[in-house]
Design a binder for these strands. Structure first.
Length: 310
DNA sequence: GGTAGACCTGGACGC
DNA sequence: GCGTCCAGGTCTACC
């Protein structure tokens, strides 16, 4: 079963006096959120489970700032390496840790399922995200049609090549390089084309990412909206929805198929529709229900997810 | 609407 | 050391 972990605040000497605290919602668990999926292994995140410290380099205008993120009672503490206003910091932190996502409905449903009874205790339900939709879209494209090890390398190389000062690149940072250079230097393969097209579309205004990801849309409309982005198909759109805190769609990939087949169908071949039917009773929490089962099975085995850690 | 094949990389495997 | 095969999600062409 999933282990309970308590975040240890970093040593007092490493936290500058300018640290800001952001209150956390009831049931929030910092390590469980950070390790909710593989994003914490992707640049520019760096996570120390032992210290309970999440580090990340962020770009604020022309400044590059190192953030040291820890858990304190009832709040998240963010210590920047140089002064950053709370107004600049807050939207990024809230998105990164899904502080505005209400998962109480999922927790309530999990209380009535013996297999999911651990969820409330573990503080499971929020996913670690990038600080922008662009970052998450690029990372999702980098997870498609490849192994997790290659994804980690692609993102590492992309941040190193395009990101200014070690922060995750903005669209304008990516379009400084042509497709061939991104492919060769970041080992993106054919994904270089879609990542550059996404970046160029945003820079030119052809893609309005704020409009595409507008939270006022219904979940169905948002799903269709994400499908219009280059390189984003049904799997990617469902993943982006989950990062908005919407779990109506399950991101069907080879890992989902393997898990459901092996867990419920004795490894027999079965259609996607039949697999998805298994989670229909979870209503708007389908993806979290599946993901929690996969997550706990991995924690049980105390080893990285097979073939990946998305 | 459904299906097949290309896209690209790197690991595994056989020789 | 080299060549071949395979896995992986999206996109496009074709039926």
């Amino acid at each position: 079963m999933v282990r309970q972990r308590s975040a240890k605040p970093s040593s007092a000497g490493s936290i500058p006096a300018v640290a800001s605290n952001f209150p956390t919602p009831p049931g929030f668990d910092f390590p469980a959120t950070v390790e909710s999926h593989g994003w914490y292994r992707l640049a520019p995140f760096r996570w120390s489970r032992e210290e309970g410290i999440l580090r990340r380099r962020e770009r604020f205008g022309r400044r590059t700032v190192d953030l040291v993120i820890t858990s304190v009672p009832g709040a998240i503490s963010v210590a920047p390496s140089s002064p950053v206003s709370r107004a600049e910091l807050e939207p990024r932190i809230r998105r990164m840790l899904q502080l505005d996502v209400d998962v109480s409905g999922f927790v309530e449903m999990s209380r009535h399922s013996p297999a999911h009874a651990w969820i409330e205790r573990a503080g499971f339900g929020r996913l670690l995200c990038g600080t922008s939709v662009f970052e998450d879209a690029v990372k999702i494209i980098a997870t498609t049609n490849t192994t997790w090890g290659q994804t980690v390398r692609m993102v590492e190389l992309l941040v190193a090549k395009c990101g200014r000062g070690g922060a995750f690149p903005e669209p304008a940072d990516v379009v400084r390089f042509d497709e061939a250079e991104l492919q060769a230097d970041c080992r993106l393969g054919y994904r270089a084309k879609t990542i550059r097209a996404l970046s160029a579309g945003i820079v030119s205004g052809a893609i309005d990412l704020d409009a595409v990801s507008d939270a006022r849309q219904s979940t169905q409309d948002l799903f269709r909206s994400y499908l219009t982005l280059p390189g984003i198909g049904p799997y990617g759109a469902a993943h982006l929805l989950a990062m908005d805190g919407r779990h109506d769609f399950i991101a069907v990939d080879s890992e989902f198929r393997r898990f459901v087949r092996e867990t419920y169908h004795g490894s027999r071949r079965i259609s996607d529709v039949a697999m998805l039917r298994r989670y229909a009773r979870w209503g708007r929490w389908k993806y979290l229900a599946y993901w929690s089962e996969l997550w706990s099975s991995v924690a049980d085995r105390l080893q990285p997810m097979r073939g990946g850690d998305k």
